[in-house]
Computed example of a mutant assay.
Amino acid sequence: MPSIRPPAVAGSFYPRDPAVLSAEVAAFLADAAPAHGPAPKAIIAPHAGYQYSGAIAASVYARLSPLRGRIRRVVLAGPAHRVYVRGVALPDVEAFDSPLGSVPIDRAAAASVLALPFVESSTRAHALEHSLEVHVPFLQRVLGTFSLLPLVVGDASIDEMAQLLEVVWGGPETLVVVSSDLSHYHPYDEARVIDRATVEQILRLDPCLVPETACGAAPINGLIEVARRRALDVELVDLRNSGDTAGGRDRVVGYAALAFHERGHA
């Protein structure tokens, strides 16, 4: 039997029941603004429980609807929360499972990044990690059939992440997704100021984010560096926090959705 990475946070971060999950993701996407302008080459989206950040994630996932049938590979990078990772970790599995079905791992892309000295194979790093898992149902709903390159990012430098992304950047068949929340547990008004500054830094393509303001700082910084080299345009799609969605306002978590566009691509 092929080895599969099973869901770890189904039933807590998002519904376990396939019908309920499909309906919830569809509702988030239906509430998002319709896709317009060029389709993204890369996106940044949050990874909290759907009640908190699902609407923000959906705002940028809705932009991907024109790419259904065109995207054949998704490079999905998110921060390590559970296990220390020196650089970047891939799971030693053949598929990522979700309540909506299994997504095959892109074995050719996996082999290409495993050749890099800072990339390791670690099923343990992926076993309980939520930062990638919560994106898979959105990707399945929006894109349909695709293969996945799931990357848990730990203590990776800007140059290392940029090098990795360049290896798997590909063409119009490849989408890059970076998973990150923003500031954690500040009062609502303070968080808004911090998160706006973080977003402005991303919009300036300044690859110097720190984990205190974006837990996915390492993969974001790598994406920003590639965006600078390739002259990508970046657009803020949504910026809110848990005080705007489903939580109190005394200690909030920030969420942003951003889209990166290649110039001259529809």
Rank of each mutant, 00 (worst) to 15 (best):
P66L: 06
V119R: 09
H36I: 03
I224C: 07
D195E: 05
L143H: 11
H186F: 15
V60A: 04
V153H: 02
E166T: 10
L116D: 10
G247E: 14
L182N: 00
V113I: 03
L21W: 01
L205G: 11
D181C: 04
R229Q: 15
A10P: 03
A80V: 06
V119Y: 05
A266R: 15
H130A: 09
V93R: 12
R249Q: 15
R82M: 11
A32F: 03
S183M: 03
T198L: 03
L21Y: 04
V85G: 01
P150L: 03
P79C: 04
L132T: 11
R263K: 13
D195W: 04
A33H: 13
L90G: 04
G171M: 05
I71A: 13
P219E: 09
A259N: 02
Y14F: 15
A58Q: 00
A19P: 00
H36V: 08
A48G: 14
S53I: 10
R72S: 15
S98C: 07
A35T: 09
A58N: 02
V136W: 09
R86Y: 10
A110M: 11
G254P: 06
P211K: 08
T198D: 01
L149T: 11
D17V: 08
I224F: 09
R141M: 09
S112M: 13
S53V: 01
S12R: 12
L239H: 06
A218T: 10
H81L: 08
A191V: 08
K41F: 05
R204L: 11
I43T: 00
A62H: 02
Y50V: 12
A111M: 10
L116E: 11
E133G: 03
A125R: 04
D181F: 07
V199D: 00
S121N: 10
G101H: 05
M1L: 13
L143W: 12
G264Y: 07
F28V: 06
V210H: 13
R240K: 14
H184C: 07
H81D: 04
R124K: 14
H261L: 08
A10M: 05
L182S: 00
A80C: 12
V93H: 07
R196T: 11
S121V: 13
A19R: 13
S157E: 07
V88G: 04
S147D: 14
A32L: 08
S98Y: 05
P187R: 00
I56F: 00
S122L: 13
V153P: 01
Y185F: 13
G154L: 05
E262S: 11
A42N: 05
E24M: 15
V83F: 09
E166R: 14
H126W: 06
